[in-house]
């Protein structure tokens, strides 16, 4: 019984992880686009997304360190 659940649990774990990182990138892309549209309001935009500058920087570090996330971010921002 437990054996049957292991692959399901693994799949769920992977899926949730992927969704989490995908969600982060999506959020970052959305914010980045807003910032690019209104560069002088960058701080305000972050506030609207409930992010501090430090959290934004951490997110950028995280995305930069993962080639898949960075690629997704790059593609999303350039759209």
């Amino acid at each position: 019984m437990i054996r049957a659940f292991v692959p399901v649990l693994l799949a769920l774990t992977v899926a949730c992880g992927g969704a989490a990182s995908g969600g982060k990138v999506e959020q970052a892309i959305a914010i980045a686009k807003e910032i690019r549209a209104k560069p002088d309001e960058a701080e305000k935009i972050l506030g609207e997304h409930k992010l501090t500058v430090e959290q934004w920087e951490d997110l950028m570090y995280e995305i930069a360190g993962d080639p898949a996330m960075a690629g997704q971010f790059e593609a999303g921002v350039q759209k």
């Binding site: 500058v53 960075a70 790059e74 921002v77």
Partner: peptide, 20 residues
């Protein structure tokens, strides 16, 4: 300024990709 800092940070993933 914080705005410049935020905009600069935005470039980090792009520059990492550039380096790759």
């Amino acid at each position: 300024t914080p705005n410049e800092r935020i905009r600069g940070a935005l470039a980090l993933p792009l520059k990492a990709q550039e380096l790759r």
